[in-house]
Structure formats: C-alpha cells, structure tokens
Design a protein around this nucleic acid. Structure first.
Lengths: 153, 153
DNA sequence: GTGAATCTTGACTAAGTAAGTAGTTATTAC
DNA sequence: GTAATAACTACTTACTTAGTCAAGATTCAC
C-alpha cells in the first residue's frame, strides 16, 4: 500500500516549486538542498513532472524549474497517477488503470467491493488537495507551536 | 499505492475459509481451485497466515486449513499489516511500521500532514471490515441481479 | 566566443521484492 | 509398514526500485 520514493520526492519538489510560485525558476540544486533529495535522482523526477505537464524548465546558467500551471489546479491525485500509476489498491478497481484480475467473478467479488471503498477514500483526499493547499498547510504548520503538532512514534 | 498479489491472495483465501467456517478443514487444493490461485504459491501464503495466527492447519491425508479465530475478529487491516506491512502510504505516518523519512522537519511536513489523512481513511475502512463482513458481502453480491452491480471499465 | 552553470538523455547497477518451482516431512488409511 | 495425501521449507528466476555515472545540449555573463 506504499507510495514509492519516486512519488514522494515528486510531491516534495512540487511543494518547493509551489512556495516559490511567481519567481522565475528554481534550480535542481536548490530543491535538492532544501528537501535533501539526491540531485541526480531528482533530475529524473523533475523530467517526469515536465512530461506530465506539471512543471516547465529553463535551461542555461540561470535555469531551473517552475510550475507550468496554477498551483490551485494541480491535484496530488493527478501527480501521483502520472508518476506512479493507479491510486487504487488493486487494479481491478482502478478507473484509469483498470486491469482484469484473476478472481472467478469480478462483478460479485467481495474483496473488490471493499477495495472500491478504500479507493474512493484515497481518491477523495488526493483529489481535494492541490499543490496550493499543500503550500498553505506548510505555512500554517511552520507557525504552529511544536507542542500543537502531533508526533507519531 | 498498490496491494501486492500476496496480500490479495491472502484475502481471497480467507474469504474461502470464512465461508466454510465451522467445517473441519479445507485443503489448499480446494482454495486454489475456487479462487484460481497457483497452488504452490498459495501454500506460502497460507503459511504466512498461519504464522500471523489467522489460520491453523492440519497435516496428513485429510489435512487442510481453517480459521484459527472467529471470522468476526479478523480484520482486513490486521491481515494486510501482517502480510504486507504498513497500510500507510508513506512510512513516516505509519503507527506500527514507523520509519523516519528524509524530509527536513517531519513534524511540520505538509506532505506528511496530507498522507496522515489518507492513512486514516484507509485504516478506517480496513479496520472496520472483518472476514465475517467479507463473507456477508460475498453472499449478498451473489444474490443481487447483475444489472444492479456496478462494472468498472 | 569561451566558460561555467544548468538542464537533458540514456545507459548502467546494486539491492530488494515478487512470483513461482522443486523437493522434504508429517499424517493417516489400509 | 507402506503408500498416498497434504502441509512445509528452501530455492530460483525475473522484475522493479532507487540511485549513479557519463556525455551532451542550452543559455548567459563576460
């Protein structure tokens, strides 16, 4: 049920680009430093994001990346779907990456029935949250006293 | 965000064992036939399930498997956690499989904040649904007319 | 134009996971 | 006690993931 680092890094990169939205471009180096992501690996990921149309790049000495669209219009669901594929826990309940599974009667499969619920819940959150929302949360969290934050051990 | 086949097969096997709850034991062969799961692969999975305490086995000529506990007490969450590990999409929001991630300030990480919501939603469904519930759904779905079922293409 | 900084592309690799196979051990009917 | 059946254990193969390396292309300051 896990997101790959690939997907996680993509979100982290978008968060950085989102907070600097409006500025010309941000270099890979800056993102890499800020989020502690291996630079060469990050290059690949930003390239993926570029192919999906989330970011655009500028080459050369003052080059870098920036969001290609309004951060309000980039949902986490869309990003993850492009980078990782299905959000659904099993592909027989995925709407965009549907694949038939081996169970004898898919339409009457109880597991599929449950997983459809899980999928809906995941999509509900990921579709709602945009890069803009992510940035707002980040800002809000930065101002909250540490005691108010909930740690998970 | 996907469940592995391992986890899926485990649930399918438990569904079979659940519907035959009360009977002495069910052989791997039967489960394999009923759910079209490669037999030898299924052996491994049932073995895993045995180690987690969900099923118990009987060897020899009339051997097989049966649920070790009341199907009402076996939640999908518990099964998947044992077979696959964390339900959470990233391990820094997992309660039982927590791992520190590389982000600079975990407590104030916006992505973590969102993923915590996703995790909660997943857990909510998976914790609620037990093997007994799965069997009921299966029975209910079997009796519904095909037209009432929603197909996903 | 030269050089330095940056993105771009592709191949490469090491490690881990998934899926499946083969052979072994225990139980019981006869 | 032997043979059949079924659980159990260990191993293999292929694929994916996470990350590196190297060479190339573009832009801009000077």
């Amino acid at each position: 049920m896990k997101l790959s680092v690939h997907g996680e890094y993509a979100l982290r990169a978008l968060l950085v680009l989102g907070t600097h939205y409006g500025e010309p471009v941000i270099s890979i180096q800056t993102i890499s430093d800020e989020q502690k992501i291996p630079k060469k690996f990050l290059e690949q990921i930003l390239n993926d994001l570029k192919r999906t149309g989330a970011v655009e790049s500028k080459r050369g000495i003052a080059g870098g990346y920036r969001l290609a669209r309004d951060p309000k219009e980039i949902t986490l669901a869309a990003v993850i779907r492009h980078i990782e594929g299905a959000l659904a826990p099993i592909s027989c309940v995925s709407e965009r990456f549907y694949e038939k599974c081996s169970c004898p009667d898919e339409a009457r499969c109880a597991i599929r029935n449950v997983m459809k619920e899980v999928r809906e819940q995941i999509v509900k959150v990921m579709e709602k949250v945009t890069v803009a929302e992510l940035c707002e949360r980040s800002k809000r969290l930065a101002h909250e006293p540490v005691s108010a934050l909930d740690y998970v051990i």
